[in-house]
Amino acid sequence: MNKDALLEVKNLKKYFPITGGFFNKVEGYVKAVDDLSFEIIKGEVFGLVGESGCGKSTTARSILRALDPTSGEVNFYNSKTEEVYNLASMDKAQLRGVRQYIQTVFQDPYSSLNPRMTIKEIVAEPVLINKLAPKSEFDEIVADRLERVGLKANYMSRYPHAFSGGQRQRVAIARALSINPQFLVCDEIVSALDVSVQAQILNLLEELKQEFELTLLFIAHDLSVIKHICDRVAVMYVGKIVEIAKTEDLFANPAHPYTESLLAAVPKTDPESGREILSLEGEVPDPSNPPSGCYFHTRCKYAEEICKKEFPELREVKGNKVACHFAKELELNGIAEI
């Protein structure tokens, strides 16, 4: 494991069985996450982006062990104990001791908070479960976390229905930070919010990242959000990573045709820019029956015969890690601004 990495994912797979017939025999598998490998460096914001259904959230849930991976490793380095844990192979009892270092913030702030619990009970719940402080200290902990996310301490006696979507997401972030985690998974946490509120939450996350020395896995489909907050980005397509690069390099000089297509579909902020907005033709392949070779060849305008037969390995090209047979030859178009 890289000494600078907080999390290392190696050959991670999550297959869902397809059953049928009178005896419910397994007839195939949906390959939601198909052999992913990447590292998240301590202190960075690592973005995961791609079309809906490409496996982003399944990847996050497999890392968190909300879903049990089919195979692979998820190595987590605990900087407090200086130990490395393979989350993918740990049992429930072992995971319970590690979960306090890894927290998550979910997409929908309306469903992720229990409407029958007060804000104090919600924010203090991780502290209670992990037995990290006596109940006499809960008021102080909750008040501190609420103020850190921009809410008043006297809100702790209220219930979630009294708050807007943006305020609820701040409560969810306060809950995640209540036990001082090292690693935070943010799964589409601003996609359900208004644009102005999105900017506030993203700026808040950047401040909290510095304050709490956090490392983030940030999942989104909105490229403008990804560019605003992420240090590096992995692009997913049908359960596989097709490109990993620094954010500025990915946007300015994409190395995979799918990344180019995603960038070309971003709406123009300047109507006089002359940039053509393109949309991908064809349908996303079925992850239970993906095409042979490169999964993207059915929609790629640069595809050749080899693309239909051999799946390209993820290799370094032009500073990016990219899975494309012709990455060295292609000159793809990026975008300067979003």
Score class of each variant (00 low, 15 high):
Ser196Trp: 03
Ile173Asn: 02
Leu278Ser: 14
Ser71Cys: 07
Arg65Asp: 00
Lys318Ile: 02
Val49Phe: 07
Gln200Asp: 04
Glu39Leu: 10
Ile189Pro: 07
Arg96Leu: 12
Val45Phe: 05
Ile129Gln: 12
Glu51Leu: 10
Asp68Ile: 09
Phe218Glu: 05
Val195His: 05
Ile241Leu: 14
Met236Tyr: 11
Phe106Trp: 13
Asn130Ala: 15
Leu6Asn: 00
Leu184Ala: 03
Asn154Val: 00
Asn154Lys: 06
Ile102Thr: 08
Asp270Lys: 06
Ser136Tyr: 09
Ala124His: 11
Val9Phe: 04
Lys31Val: 12
Lys3Met: 02
Ala133Met: 12
Glu125Cys: 11
Asn78Asp: 15
Lys301Ile: 11
Pro267Asp: 05
Phe23Val: 14
Glu310His: 08
Gly239Val: 07
Lys92Tyr: 11
Ser292Glu: 13
Tyr295Trp: 03
Ile229Ala: 01
Ile18Ser: 09
Leu332Gln: 04
Glu51Ala: 09
Phe212Cys: 06
Gly334Pro: 09
Glu304Phe: 11
Ala220Ser: 15
Asp231Met: 06
Gly47Ala: 12
Val195Glu: 07
Pro160Trp: 02
Lys31Phe: 11
Glu39His: 12
Ser157Pro: 00
Val190Phe: 02
Asn203Pro: 00
Glu125Val: 10
Asp68Tyr: 06
Glu125Thr: 08
Met236Ala: 09
Arg96Asp: 10
Val284Trp: 03
Ala133Thr: 12
Ala192Pro: 01
Lys25Asp: 15
Ser112Arg: 05
Ile338Val: 15
Leu208Met: 13
Leu87Ser: 11
Leu216Asn: 04
Leu128Tyr: 14
Cys230Tyr: 05
